[in-house]
Amino acid sequence: MKIKFHYTVILSLMLFSAACKLDNYAPPSVTLKGQLMYKGTPVNVEYNQVPFQLYQSGFKGNTPISGTFDQDGTYSVLTFNGNYKFTIPGGQGPFQWKELPSGGRDSIAINLTGDQTVNIEVTPYYMIRNAQLVASGGNITAQFSIEKVITDATAKNIQTVSLFVNKTQFTSTADQAAEVDLAGTLITDPTNVNLSVAIPKFTPTQNYVYARVGIRIAGVEDMIFSPVQKLTY
Rank of each mutant, 00 (worst) to 15 (best):
Y126T: 04
K167I: 01
F95Q: 04
D106H: 13
V149K: 05
V161A: 02
T113V: 07
V118M: 06
L195H: 03
E179P: 00
D152W: 09
D189A: 09
I140G: 00
T160P: 00
N119C: 06
Q143T: 15
A153Q: 15
Q116S: 14
F170S: 12
L163F: 04
V180C: 06
R105W: 04
F170K: 10
G137T: 03
G184C: 08
G138S: 10
F164L: 10
T117A: 12
I140E: 01
V161S: 03
G103A: 09
E99N: 14
F170T: 11
P94R: 06
T160W: 08
F95D: 04
Q169T: 07
G114Q: 06
Q143H: 09
V122A: 06
I108V: 15
K156F: 06
N192W: 12
A142H: 03
S162D: 10
G137K: 04
N139C: 01
A153S: 15
W97P: 10
V122I: 14
S172F: 09
Q169Y: 14
A155E: 12
N192F: 11
D189N: 15
N111G: 11
Y125V: 05
P124C: 00
T154K: 08
A142D: 02
V149M: 05
T123A: 10
I140H: 00
T117G: 00
L186C: 00
T113D: 07
I146A: 05
L195G: 05
Q96E: 14
P94Y: 07
N194F: 12
T113K: 09
V122E: 06
